[in-house]
């Protein structure tokens, strides 16, 4: 079209193609600008800060590895690591088993009202963590429903909001209640993505129910199971709101020691003790732990896959 027009010099490099590319860059630029400011810079600064002593008022002082030594020698830090893992495991392992059971049941041939059940199961995920924690704090009160049930069954009541295990069981219950339905629905989607012909072919070949489960369902469901495990693990490493609200007391900067998690430890170091350096060191530790555990998850899944392990 431009051939007939007198060629202005500017047209030679300002082509339609470049214009399109520039528009595309413009469209994607908000993400990259915001990420540079509120993502990339802070991450780099966290690493940098973890080698300095700083309380936001006096000048920063380089201290080498001292912040790391400090947290690694702090008993509370290791308690927070242990708590995070214990509550994470107690909240997610039974959750995933129940979610798998519910998903398989929902996927069963006889079940009607599937959409109705799905909606109800998903409802806890919509409820805010603060609301969930407040309701369960009543259920797990000293004279609450949970202890009422225990007494009824002939057990001693448990101090849910102060005991080492009591607190963990209460918080694990909250995590489990809020996320089981979410995982059920993801696993159900996975089950429904398996082509029915596979089952028919296997049945013609005389495969039993166990063989169908272990040779078809679980291997094909594996990516979904991996997704669910990965998300739950990352989520439980970042556990903050439930223990913070459940055992938090105003003015103490976070939860009781029985419920302190890594993120609460970080929060307390930064915003109550104003030790920004040790808080940053905690964040770096959490970052590498997250990567390590994610990689381990994927590695184990691949191993199971290629070795012809349990699921093949």
């Amino acid at each position: 079209m431009n051939h007939s027009l007198p060629a202005k010099p500017i047209r030679r490099w300002w082509t339609e193609r470049k214009r399109t590319a520039l528009t595309a860059y413009l469209f994607i630029s908000p993400f990259f600008i915001l990420f540079a400011i509120f993502g990339l810079f802070p991450i780099a600064f966290t690493f940098y800060l973890s080698f300095f002593r700083w309380n936001a008022l006096s000048p920063m002082r380089f201290v080498g590895w001292e912040n790391y030594m400090f947290i690694f020698e702090d008993k509370t830090f290791w308690t927070s690591v242990l708590n995070t893992f214990l509550m994470g495991a107690m909240g997610t392992v039974p959750q995933l088993i129940v979610a798998l059971l519910l998903a398989v049941t929902l996927n069963s041939a006889v079940i009607r009202f599937r959409r109705f059940f799905r909606t109800l199961y998903f409802m806890p995920t919509v409820t805010s963590i603060v609301a969930v924690t407040l309701v369960f704090s009543a259920i797990f009160g000293n004279n609450g429903m949970a202890n009422g049930l225990l007494t009824e069954l002939g057990f001693d009541p448990v101090p849910w909001n102060s005991g080492w295990w009591g607190i963990k069981i209460a918080i694990a219950t909250m995590i489990m209640w809020r996320w089981t339905g979410y995982n059920t629905i993801i696993l159900l989607a996975g089950l429904q993505s398996i082509p029915p012909e596979l089952y028919e072919a296997a049945k013609i070949d005389g495969a039993g129910k166990g063989a169908l489960l272990f040779k078809i369902t679980l291997p094909l469901l594996q990516p979904f199971i991996l997704f669910v495990i990965l998300m739950s693990t990352i989520g439980s490493l970042q556990l903050f709101t439930e223990p913070f609200v459940f055992t938090g007391r105003e003015g103490t900067g976070g939860a009781r020691v029985e419920a302190i998690t890594m993120v609460i430890y970080l929060y307390r170091e930064a915003f109550y003790n104003t030790f920004f350096g040790t808080a940053a060191a905690t964040a770096v530790f959490l970052f590498f732990l997250t990567i390590l555990i994610s990689v381990m998850n994927v590695w184990i899944a691949n191993k199971l896959n290629s070795d012809g392990g349990a699921w093949r």
């Binding site: 810079f41 802070p42 991450i43 966290t46 970042q238 993120v263 959490l286 997250t290």
Partner: peptide, 26 residues
């Protein structure tokens, strides 16, 4: 294009808490 999109996806795996303190300072 491919590289930038991959970069966007990679940011999904960075925990939010990592940037908590610098963002507060910012």
């Amino acid at each position: 294009r491919r590289f930038l999109f991959f970069f966007v996806l990679a940011t999904l795996f960075v925990p939010q808490q990592l940037s908590l303190i610098p963002n507060y300072i910012l």
